[in-house]
Amino acid sequence: MQGTVDARRAYARATCYCRDCQAYARHLGQPGVMDAQGGTDIIAMNPDAVTFTAGEEHIAGLCLREGGLLRWYAGCCRTPLGNTPRHGHVAYVGVVAACLPDAQQRDAAFGPRDRIVLNAGAALGDVRPTPFAVIGGGLRIAAGVVTAKLRRQAPSLFFDMSGQPHRTAHPLSARDRRPARPEPA
């Protein structure tokens, strides 16, 4: 798969330590998705900023729990792509930074990692929360989503014009969830 992202359409960059992000990374089994404390580097952006230029037929999806985010990946190599709400009328995709090839270019385009820390309480090690940065990032995301709504942005990327996913995001079975979501120590 190949694609591009337009950094000008990014809302915020955060590291998420939630158990769902950890389970997603473990299930895909790709090294480098999580940091040592279990955090996933996520770039929140408008889905119009993401374009696939080759291999779009390989996009696969899963959901970790009923009503949870849809988590997308390349079915051919299990590279994580991002997460979206369940309906395409919300202009949000959380691109997993690990799918972007060059860390230096990521930092130059989207700013340094860890300015915004989400769900620090679920981290596998000591991680300092960033409550004020979370509020600021949340406001930037909300502003981007509302602006897209006011502009009547059509669903894109993973969704059809009615807002339904182009592909089925299969729920993980209980058997697949167990190793992906071990109990905290």
Rank of each mutant, 00 (worst) to 15 (best):
R78A: 13
A12G: 06
V90E: 06
A180R: 01
A143V: 00
G3V: 10
H166S: 01
Q2E: 10
D102Y: 03
R167H: 03
Q22K: 04
D107E: 15
Y92Q: 11
A103G: 02
D35V: 13
R113F: 06
V134P: 03
M161H: 14
L100M: 12
T147R: 14
A180G: 09
V33I: 04
R26Q: 00
P112H: 14
L81S: 06
V117I: 15
R167N: 05
P129H: 06
G67P: 07
C76R: 14
G88P: 07
Y11T: 09
D35P: 09
R181L: 15
M161V: 14
P184D: 08
A49H: 01
V146W: 02
N46Q: 02
P155G: 04
L124Y: 11
V134Y: 00
F132W: 14
H58D: 09
R65E: 09
T53Q: 07
I42S: 00
R19H: 12
A36D: 14
R151I: 03
C21S: 05
A120Y: 08
A109Q: 12
S156F: 07
P129L: 04
A12L: 09
R8E: 15
P179G: 03
R71C: 04
Q104M: 09
Q164M: 06
T15G: 10
A122D: 15
I116V: 15
P184Y: 06
P179Q: 04
G94K: 00
G125W: 09
A98N: 07
T51E: 13
P165N: 08
L157P: 13
L157H: 10
R65V: 12
M45S: 05
Q2N: 14
A122G: 06
A142Q: 03
P101C: 00
P182R: 03
D48H: 13
L64W: 05
G136C: 05
P131I: 02
R19G: 09
M161W: 07
T51I: 06
A98F: 01
L139D: 00
R78K: 14
G29M: 09
G163H: 00
Q105Y: 05
P155K: 02
L69C: 06
G29P: 08
P179R: 08
R65H: 15
T84R: 03
R152G: 15
P155Q: 02
L124M: 12
A103I: 12
C16E: 05
T147C: 13
R86S: 11
Q164P: 00
E183C: 05
H58E: 11
V95M: 11
R65W: 13
P85T: 13
L157G: 05
A133P: 03
R167G: 02
R26G: 01
A98S: 15
I59Y: 02
D20C: 00
C63R: 11
D102S: 04
G111P: 09
V93P: 07
L64F: 03
L100A: 13
I135L: 14
Q105M: 14
I59E: 00
Y73T: 10
C77N: 15
P182M: 04
A142S: 08
P182S: 04
R78D: 04
A174V: 10
R151H: 13
G88T: 04
